[in-house]
């Protein structure tokens, strides 16, 4: 294939990766930024979203779009509920101690993974996309659903941004993120904010998973890569910066796609990972972050 179309295809693919990554990472960024804890189980919430999407679409017969829409609503709610319980039962009792929460969320990771293996099984299972439309470009065909994922993700990101910047809930969250003690002094129920943020973060991961699952199947070990990539995106973007998170997701997604045009894939991954690490070495606060407090 000629160079131009090849690059176009790689960019489209990078865009899809970036869209899903941005949503997942935003969830992690909220938890990371507001609660100051490292949630190692974030990838498992992603996986849980995909697995539930499979369960819901399998249970609902009729047009695939019906089941998919149901999954898009129900799966994140269920995942949010699981996160809420975990927050109430475990994290709050640890007083959000950063080290103890790492152990606790690793424990949570094991539990969720094992439950998925026991009740869902070890196989990769497909979910039918809500629609099958193949866009025919002059050089190659492309999945219309993939482009709709990008659009849906952009909509969700804008919605999240509006909630964070234009509503009272968002203001309360940002206040808690900025200074916990002062927020408490001003009568903000910090504990309830934390519970809400943790659930919301998990829900964002779950939504991202439901969107991607018709493209890449549900599997009980699918959580690890999104977790690692989300960590990278959050830090590169700068803690607590929504704009930074989106830009970093774009950089990571696109660079992964485009570098693979020029190099053998594994070498491409080595180069991309190294370059991103070097960005962080010379700009530790991330692209849009302020210096860490």
């Amino acid at each position: 294939m000629a160079f131009g179309p090849h690059l176009l295809l790689a960019s489209l693919e990078g865009l899809v990766t970036a869209a899903v990554l941005a949503l997942t990472a935003l969830g992690l960024s909220l938890v990371f930024g507001v609660m100051r804890i490292v949630n190692v189980a974030h990838g498992e919430f992603f996986m849980l979203g995909a697995v539930l999407a499979w369960a819901i679409t399998t249970a609902i017969t009729g047009h695939p779009a019906l089941g998919f829409l149901a999954a898009l609503v129900i799966a994140p709610l269920l995942v949010g509920a699981v996160a809420l319980v975990a927050e109430r039962v475990v994290l709050r009792r640890l007083n959000y101690n950063p080290e103890a929460t790492i152990v606790a969320t690793i424990g949570l990771l094991y539990i969720i993974q094992q439950l998925a293996l026991t009740f869902y099984g070890p196989e990769a299972r497909p979910v039918e996309p809500p629609f099958n439309y193949r866009i025919l470009l002059p050089w190659f065909g492309y999945s219309g659903y993939k482009l709709s994922v990008v659009a849906a993700s952009a909509l969700l990101l804008v919605a999240t941004w509006l909630v964070l910047t234009r509503t009272k809930i968002g203001m309360v969250m940002r206040a808690t993120q900025y200074d916990r003690e002062t927020a408490q002094a001003f009568g903000i129920p910090v504990e309830r904010v934390y519970a809400g943020v943790f659930a919301l973060g998990a829900m964002l991961a779950a939504v991202a998973a439901v969107l991607i699952v018709p493209i890449s199947q549900a599997h009980y070990l699918m959580g690890q890569d999104p977790l690692l990539l989300s960590f990278i995106v959050v830090i590169i973007g700068g803690l607590g910066s929504l704009r930074g998170t989106v830009v970093a997701a774009l950089i990571i997604g696109l660079s992964d796609g485009i570098i693979s045009v020029f190099f053998s894939p594994t070498l491409a991954k080595i180069i991309a990972t190294f370059l991103v690490a070097m960005v962080l070495v010379f700009r530790p606060q991330g692209l849009f972050g302020t210096t860490a407090r």
Binding site: V90, G107, Q114, L115
Partner: peptide, 16 residues
């Protein structure tokens, strides 16, 4: 065969 579950619960109980 669900030993991961036991390890997970142990980690959480331990850390609590």
């Amino acid at each position: 065969s669900a030993w991961l579950l036991i390890v997970g619960v142990m980690l959480i109980v331990g850390v609590l």
